Amino acid sequence: MQLSLNSNFSSTLKTTAWALPVAIALPILVHLAPPYNGFPMGAYLLPMFYMPIVALIAYRLPVALLLAILAPPLNFLISGNPHWGLMAMLTLELVIFTLLAYVFLLQRIIKWIAAPLAFLGAKTISSALLIFIPLIEANPVQFFSTSLNNATIGILILLAINIVCLKYLPNQEIRDKV
Results as ranks from 00 to 15, higher is better:
119 F>A: 00
129 L>K: 04
159 L>S: 11
30 V>N: 04
79 S>E: 08
119 F>R: 00
47 P>I: 06
10 S>T: 06
65 L>Y: 03
45 L>V: 06
61 L>Y: 02
12 T>H: 05
47 P>H: 07
73 P>L: 04
98 T>S: 04
129 L>S: 05
108 R>A: 09
155 I>E: 07
16 T>V: 13
101 A>K: 10
107 Q>E: 10
174 I>Q: 15
21 P>V: 07
86 L>A: 10
100 L>T: 09
157 I>H: 15
151 A>T: 14
4 S>R: 06
2 Q>W: 09
31 H>L: 12
5 L>A: 05
22 V>Y: 03
15 T>V: 12
152 T>D: 00
66 L>T: 00
59 Y>H: 15
158 L>P: 07
25 A>F: 10
101 A>W: 05
104 F>S: 08
30 V>L: 11
93 E>D: 04
70 L>Y: 01
55 A>K: 04
125 I>S: 03
140 P>A: 02
42 G>Y: 07
79 S>P: 14
29 L>Q: 00
151 A>G: 14
85 G>F: 01
140 P>I: 09
161 I>N: 13
30 V>M: 14
145 S>P: 11
6 N>L: 02
150 N>A: 09
76 F>P: 00
26 L>E: 12
79 S>N: 11
97 F>P: 07
40 P>D: 11
100 L>Q: 04
80 G>A: 12
141 V>K: 10
70 L>P: 05
123 K>R: 10
8 N>K: 11
103 V>W: 11
55 A>I: 02
169 L>I: 08
